[in-house]
Nucleic acid binder design. Structure first.
Lengths: 229, 229
DNA sequence: TCAAAAGTGTTGAACATACACCCATGT
DNA sequence: ACATGGGTGTATGTTCAACACTTTTGA
């Protein structure tokens, strides 16, 4: 290689977002060790010697959520490497963004014992390291991606009603959308969602069609704007 | 820290894109040393011990383009860390995307002596490491960003005509746009571009107004679609 | 006078917003 | 019966695509 190349530790940090009780929530842990002991932080861990980055992210994701296999959306968010960001030394953090349906609270006994879902608004000023910046970038990314990709389904369970999907947009963007126009837009966009042929009354009122995320690629996704309509 | 944490080398790789002679081009170097000696690669280098990631990217950018201070757009693209991607050992590459106006070819004498602008279509199958993947991701990113951000100006010189700006979209997307509708859309969007008060005839024909990139943030950027209009 | 490029006007189609209205269920 | 949410119809306004047409230069 070259002379005296600096060697650094590489970590993955996870921003796992979900919508619960009409609030955008992130999974955070309570740090059991120094530094920042007792403070909240994003889940994460170090990348092993022969491990790919996404592989490390999926491993941590499984450990933190208690799920053997994570079904949902996972994407790389960005890499944070300011020299002073970790008091233990030079640590490069590759952040990943995961979007999950409303998972049960992680159970005790696993590594995730100290993990909990917290509304993102309650996290301001409480996170260790530069994790507040990472979280903020993650929320920006999620908001932006809803606008021009059919990603909202990643926040939903296997099958969902149009109203449940709409609530995802409303919570993430913090706006109210017209239920009727939203319904039309989503169902009339080829490949966005596909009906599953069943109905549910779990939202109350008249039974609603159940849908799942569209299987085929959406050729020209509609621009979902956080407007009023 | 912890026991036996793997330490890795961290590099930055640069995808520097520009539009020259109606072609989308990237700056590539010819590797002078092993591995992949003689082959083309993206410019890049290792991150120093006390250096931030973007700082390293800007340093390399200056060295490769021969510019003291790079004026243009620079953003983090993604991080590539597959265990086998560098035959010398575990190297994590943080890729950055730079968009530049049509710069002069880097001069000999600098580190950039071996650097040259190459149309991206000519690069298929010629790049070292996983740089073809990185380049492909960079082009995808640039294409997507033109659609929903006012970023095209980063490809232009200080002042430019609407037709020159349009040619950026046409080259990056590989489509023809209607000059008249494009003109209307761009000039009627508040903050997208601002007139500089001068005219030029460098494109031939009737003199065109010169513009510069809008100073204020564009509140609601228009969706520029690679359609026909 | 002609070619070339800038820029404006106009028109029909597509789409978005707002909202009236009906449907199907639980209580 | 009535409240609740699902879903359709429709009017109005805005934006978009297409293109006719005028303006201003260089050759």
């Amino acid at each position: 290689m070259d002379v005296a190349l600096p060697k650094m530790t590489v970590a993955v940090d996870l921003v796992i977002l979900t919508v619960r009780q009409d609030l955008l929530c992130a999974l955070v842990i309570n740090r059991a060790i120094e530094p920042f002991k007792g403070q909240r932080a994003l889940p994460g861990g170090f990348v092993l010697d022969d491990e790919d980055l996404e592989e490390a992210a999926r491993r941590e994701l499984g450990e933190e959520t208690g799920l053997v296999e994570f079904r949902g959306h996972l994407e790389q968010l960005g890499t944070y490497g300011a020299p002073g960001r970790d008091p233990r030394g030079r640590v490069i953090a590759v952040a990943y963004l995961a979007l999950a349906p409303d998972l049960p609270t992680p159970e005790a006994g696993s590594d995730a014992a100290a993990a909990e879902w917290v509304p993102v608004e309650s996290l301001a000023g409480t996170l260790a390291f530069d994790h507040e910046q990472i979280l903020s970038d993650a929320i920006d990314r999620a908001r932006a991606k809803l606008e021009y990709t059919p990603l909202a389904g990643a926040f939903c369970t296997d099958t969902f009603t149009i109203a449940e999907l709409r609530r995802v947009y409303e919570v993430v963007w913090g706006v109210a959308l017209d239920p009727r126009n939203f319904h039309r837009k989503v169902t009339s966009t080829e490949g966005f969602v596909e009906p599953v042929g069943e109905r549910t009354t779990r939202d109350g009122g008249r039974p609603a069609q159940l849908y799942r995320v569209g299987g085929a690629e959406v050729l020209q996704p509609p621009v979902m704007r956080p407007g009023v309509g």
